[in-house]
Amino acid sequence: MGFKLLSKLLVYLTASIMAIASPLAFSVDSSGEYPTVSEIPVGEVRLYQIADGVWSHIATQSFDGAVYPSNGLIVRDGDELLLIDTAWGAKNTAALLAEIEKQIGLPVTRAVSTHFHDDRVGGVDVLRAAGVATYASPSTRRLAEVEGNEIPTHSLEGLSSSGDAVRFGPVELFYPGAAHSTDNLIVYVPSASVLYGGCAIYELSRTSAGNVADADLAEWPTSIERIQQHYPEAQFVIPGHGLPGGLDLLKHTTNVVKAHTNRSVVE
């Protein structure tokens, strides 16, 4: 069995187990497998329904001669939608809004960016022009300005110390501490036991640490421990890039980060 097929099978099995364990909360999309990078042309966006009122959005972007996937989250909030992270750029984010209108038909009224990198804030200006209120932590807003990236308009308070959590509509926002970046936030959907790890969490097929220019490698494993301790009931975990899975993604990420750190020390 090929690795790609095995990865998709694991996603399907995880979703099936969740649907059985929580039949009222989960209505997993039966329309197909989780979209992969090879299936999404740059400039297009796919939506994948995880649970009743919960979707991931998947886009792709060219970077350094390669094409990478990027995940975000959409959560229903009454007759409105909360968006977590842009679709990595203005063109993708405009396509995301169009796809949401086509498939869901509810307005996106608020959006949260989970850290300051372009795959999370690139497209904020498109959201703002569409009347979406954009939010991020003060740290993310400051770092985005320093980096020359787009800056969300509103500040999220109460997320300055490791372990801080605040309720934001249908989700809980959690600051686990520094990891992929010093400002990275985690998003949890309690009604569906869905954990969105953003770039602080890796997919299972990833074996290298990737972009760690703004990471705190020493603190990252401790931050992941905080996530595990705060959300032990999480059933569906979405990484910032690639295929979702279960809580095993947290341990896998820790292993990859520690291996990278150990290699760096040896070198």
Rank of each mutant, 00 (worst) to 15 (best):
G197I: 01
L81H: 02
A133N: 05
G89E: 01
L159V: 12
A94H: 13
S155N: 13
S223R: 02
P244T: 05
L5G: 07
S264G: 08
W55L: 02
L24V: 07
V266D: 06
E101I: 12
R263E: 08
G78L: 10
S161P: 04
L47T: 14
D125T: 08
A87I: 00
N71C: 02
V189Y: 05
A200T: 11
L204F: 05
Y188T: 02
A178Y: 08
S223P: 04
S208D: 10
S223W: 01
P190W: 05
K102P: 05
L6S: 12
T222Q: 12
L5E: 07
D183T: 00
D85F: 00
I50N: 04
P190Q: 06
P152M: 01
P107F: 06
I17K: 06
T182F: 13
L106N: 15
S70L: 03
L13F: 08
S181E: 01
V212S: 13
E147S: 14
G158T: 12
N184H: 02
E80W: 11
Q228M: 15
A25K: 08
I100G: 02
I84L: 13
L247N: 10
R76E: 10
A21K: 08
V171K: 00
P232M: 10
T134D: 04
A259Q: 14
V28D: 06
P23T: 08
I74K: 01
L9N: 06
S137Y: 04
V126C: 05
A215T: 11
S27I: 06
I227H: 01
T134Q: 01
P138H: 07
S113W: 04
P23F: 07
Q61A: 11
G210S: 14
N71P: 00
S7I: 10
K91L: 13
K251R: 08
V108N: 02
N92Y: 04
S137L: 10
S181Y: 04
V124C: 10
D164I: 11
Y68H: 07
H230K: 15
P152E: 02
G53T: 15
W220G: 01
P244D: 03
T36C: 06
A130V: 10
L243K: 10
G123Y: 03
G169F: 04
T86C: 07
A59R: 04
A94G: 13
A66Y: 12
V108M: 13
S181D: 00
A90Q: 13
E147N: 13
A165M: 15
D216L: 14
E99N: 05
T36F: 06
L127A: 03
Y202Q: 12
L83C: 03
E99Q: 06
I227Y: 00
Y12R: 13
E147W: 12
M1V: 05
S223Y: 02
T60W: 06
H260C: 08
A133E: 10
E39S: 07
G43F: 12
A215I: 09
L24A: 08
W220D: 00
H230R: 11
P176Y: 00
V171F: 01
G43E: 09
S155E: 13
H154M: 15
S205E: 10
L204T: 12
A209G: 12
V146M: 11
I104Y: 00
V194M: 06
E219S: 14
D64E: 07
Q228T: 06
V54Q: 03
G245C: 03
R167T: 06
Q228S: 15
V146H: 10
D125C: 04
S193K: 14
L185I: 10
T134M: 03
D119R: 00
A133M: 15
P190H: 05
R110D: 11
P107C: 04
N262Q: 05
L10H: 07
T14H: 06
G122A: 11
V67G: 09
S62N: 10
N149L: 13
S7V: 12
P69A: 13
K258V: 11
N255W: 08
S160V: 14
V166E: 08
R263P: 13
I84Y: 00
A218G: 12
I104S: 00
I224K: 02
V11A: 07
A129R: 10
N71Y: 02
L82I: 11
P23Q: 06
A66K: 10
R120T: 04
G122W: 12
Y202H: 05
E39L: 07
G169D: 04
S139H: 13
G169H: 04
D79Q: 13
D29C: 08
G240Q: 01
R226Q: 05
L47C: 02
H241E: 00
T261S: 13
S208P: 07
E225Y: 06
H230E: 12
R46Y: 15
G210F: 04
H230S: 09
D164M: 11
W88R: 00
S7G: 06
I74Q: 01
C199K: 00
L5T: 09
V121E: 01
G2A: 08
E99M: 14
D216H: 07
V266F: 12
I100K: 01
H180D: 01
P107Q: 08
G89W: 02
R263F: 08
T109G: 12
F168M: 15
L185C: 02
L47M: 13
V194W: 01
H180T: 00
D64I: 08
S160T: 13
I201R: 02
E80S: 12
I74V: 09
W55F: 15
V256A: 07
W88C: 01
Q103T: 14
G78E: 08
L250Y: 08
S181M: 01
R128M: 15
S62A: 14
N92M: 07
G242F: 03
